[in-house]
Structure formats: C-alpha cells, structure tokens
Design a protein around this nucleic acid. Structure first.
Lengths: 227, 227
DNA sequence: CTCTGGCATGTTGTATACAAAATGCAACAG
DNA sequence: CTGTTGCATTTTGTATACAACATGCCAGAG
C-alpha cells in the first residue's frame, strides 16, 4: 500500500503554515469571522508574507477561510444553514462509504472495528468524552479506508474539518450519547453481514442525529448570545 | 437572490490566472501529466510568478494540479481507478441533490426543466452533440440549484470540473445516447411527482452508465496508445 | 564501457521592496 | 450636530531579487 520505504517527510513552508492555521481555526484560537492580518500573522508564524499567502489559498480551498479582494482573509463563520447543508452532504458521503465498504470489507477489518467498538464502550462507560470522540473518529475514518475510494476519503475529510470548525462537541446529553454508541454497534453488525443498504441508512440517520444536536446547540448559543 | 444591485466584478490576478489555466487544462491544451514551468507560464500569462503560484494553489485545491515540493506543479493524470472513484462520489452527490430537490421543487421549476428537456430532445434528434452536452449540463446544474444546498453544489461543481479534465465526451454511441435522453425524461417525471427515492436511484444509475462509458473509453485509449 | 562524483545550469522557494487599494480620522460645510 | 471630503496611515497585491534545491552533463576511476 505504501510508496517508498523511507520517505523523507518534507513539507514546504506554505503547507506547514496552513496546517498550523488549520489547528488554530479548529481549536477556535482564530475565531470565526476574524480577519487575518498578513504582516502580523507572518511574524507570529515566523515566515514571510509570500508563503503565508499561499497558505491562505490552501485554507480557502478547504473552505476554512474566505478571501475578499483587497480586503484580506477571514475565518469562515458558518451559519446554522451552512451546518445543515454540510451535514446533509456528509450523510451522502458516509452513506456511500458504507455501501462501498460492504463490498470490500475483510473479516480482519471487522475484528479491528469490533476492537474499536469495545474501546468506545469503555470510553462511554467511563464518561470519557475526549476518548469517545477520538475513537468515534477512528471508526469513521476506518470505514472510509475500507471503502477504498481516495476521492471519497478526501472529500469527506475536507468537509469534516470544515464542520469541526464549528466546535460542535457541546450538546451531547446522556440519552444521545447512549443512542450514538448503540448505533455504532448496529453499524458494525450490518457491515459484518454485508448489508450495504442497512448500513447506509444507519450512517445517514446517525449523521442526521448529530446534525440535529449541532443545530440545537447553535440555536441555543445564538439566543443566549454566547461567543 | 442577488446581493448588491451593481456589483463591480473585480477579480484578482491569481483568480484570473487560475481560471485561464483551468480552461487550458480542461480543453487539454495543458495535457495530463504536463509539468508547468513557472517562469515560462508567468510570461505567457503576463503575470509575475507570485500570483501564478497562488493560482497553482487554487488549482491544486480543485484537484486539477499536483504540487511536489521543490519540483513544481503538474497537471493531474487521472487513472481509470480515479475516474471510477470520482463517478462513485458524483453518484452519491447527485443522488442527494435529487432527494433534496423533491422537497423544494416548484411547479415553475418543473416547467423550466421540461423546456430544457425539449431542447435536449431537439439536440438529440438533430445529432447535435455539443448542444446536447450543453443542455445536459444545464439540467444537472438546475437540479442542483433546486436542491438549494450551496455546499453540495460547490462539491459537485469541483468534482465535475475534475472529471471533465478527462475529456470524456468521446464514447457516446447511439444506443447509449438514446438511453440517456430517455433517462432524463424519467428523472423529470419522478421529480414532478416528488418521488425522491426513485429520482435518486435514477440519478445514480444514470451516473453509473456514464461511468461505464468513460471507463470503456479509457481502456480503449490505453490499449490503443492514444495520446 | 559503466558507474560514480562533482559541477554548471535551470527551476523552485522565500523574502523583501514597491504599488495600489482600503481604512480611519479630522477638518470643514451645511 | 451631521454628513461629506480629503489626507495620512495601514493593509493588501504584485514584482523582483536572492537562496535553496534539482537536474543533466561531463570527467575520471574502475
């Protein structure tokens, strides 16, 4: 699967800067709507404006930044509508991932997923939210990997990053959490019996639940005036 | 729907350059795999290297270029596998567009689509392939617009552009053409009766047929050694 | 003749200088 | 007091200069 055995990871300055900015945006250090001053940022990152501007272009392509002519770049501020749309598309992508996965999944894959599921149950039992999110992401990434469609994976990842900029890990109450864990169990079961249609439906419903939770959170934040 | 009444269309140099290069790539003037020399290209486009490099970043984000550190940019060369993957994702996206469209479509929309369908039938009857492709694109764009999901539209458009770089308008024989036109008729009918599931299935099958045609063409070109 | 090493050349990467546009403020007219 | 106009300042856009790296060729050793 891999290319050369000892690949020297060489990153260019624009890519490194973009990666750094990506993190800052997702963590919220660079708030939605914030305008990015080129000179200031370039000094903070320790690079000149030229590679920084290329980093801006990369992030604009990812949908994390918007660039206005002669007025610089600013962090995107996703509206509730945008979030809704994003999750709809995510649903379609994950649904496809599920359908493709059943055609290619091996028993070893299912073993791995069951192990991840066990980790998830543990995190759930211990009320360890960060661990839960980490395992959750691992499971969905794994499903995408099994699907074996690089274009799908890339599209999925990009959109996922964009939605993560919403920092939506807020509104997960006990009932929803229980349900989400149960859904994962069912999804792996559907994959194990190679039921693509069922898996697809589950993934879409799963996404829809997340969408609902995020939209509620956003509505609350809006009415409460939370920053 | 529009913003300000008299928007001054101001494009930056990088965007203009990217747009020009996009055309050159899709038309095949810049062949797949071709390496792009910055100095040379910047002179041909009449811009300096700095905005040209930003244009490269834009196009790399669109998936039309790949950039290798210290080794410049080159036009992507999609493999048959890539094409297959791309069409799979397109199917999921168009399927979603169909499902969303039925929830929002108006009778006026359907009238417009029927008019486009009539245009398509004319183009088909007159064996006017360019006109057919134009109308075809208009119909699919229209469906996306009705779906009313900007993120979906953007994702769809980007991927579509990427696939167009394959220049796959080759292998459309009479039987396939007839079938494609008939499928469009059925799709509009499904939309008219608001049958989202049926429309989705049709769109996916429609895409699958196109995918097959493209893969066959690519296989032929490969074995025939066509450049 | 073949392979390796080193150098010359070309090409990409980054920094900086200059040009153009936007922004904010202050002075002035109404 | 309000709104407008012009200027100073800041910020972005583009070009260019220089540095780092890659490539191709030639000489020389084996």
């Amino acid at each position: 699967m891999d290319g050369s055995p000892f690949p020297i990871v060489r990153s260019t300055l624009p890519e490194a800067a973009a990666e750094r900015l990506r993190t800052l945006i997702i963590e919220g250090t660079l708030a939605p709507g914030a305008r990015l001053n080129e000179r200031e940022l370039s000094e903070q990152l320790g690079v000149s404006r030229t590679p920084l501007r290329e980093a801006f272009r990369i992030l604009a392509g990812d949908g994390l930044l918007v660039q206005l002519p002669n007025r610089g770049a600013q962090v995107v501020a996703l509206s509730a509508e945008d979030a809704r749309h994003g999750f709809d598309v995510m649903g379609a992508l994950e649904g496809l991932a599920g359908e493709l996965a059943v055609t290619r999944v091996t028993d070893a894959d299912i073993e791995d997923l069951r192990a991840l599921q066990a980790e998830m149950e543990t995190a759930h039992a211990e009320r360890d939210l960060p661990a839960y999110y980490r395992v959750n992401r691992a499971i969905h990434d794994r499903l995408n990997a099994i699907a074996g469609n690089p274009i799908l994976t890339h599209t999925y990842r990009t959109l996922n990053t964009r939605l993560h900029a919403l920092r939506f890990r807020s509104n997960l109450n006990t009932a929803k959490w229980n349900q989400a864990v149960a859904e994962h169990r069912d999804m792996i079961a559907a994959l194990a019996v190679r039921d693509g249609a069922a898996l697809r439906d589950m993934l879409i419903r799963h996404l829809r639940a997340k969408q609902q939770a995020v939209l509620e959170t956003m509505k609350n934040e809006k009415t409460l005036g939370v920053v």
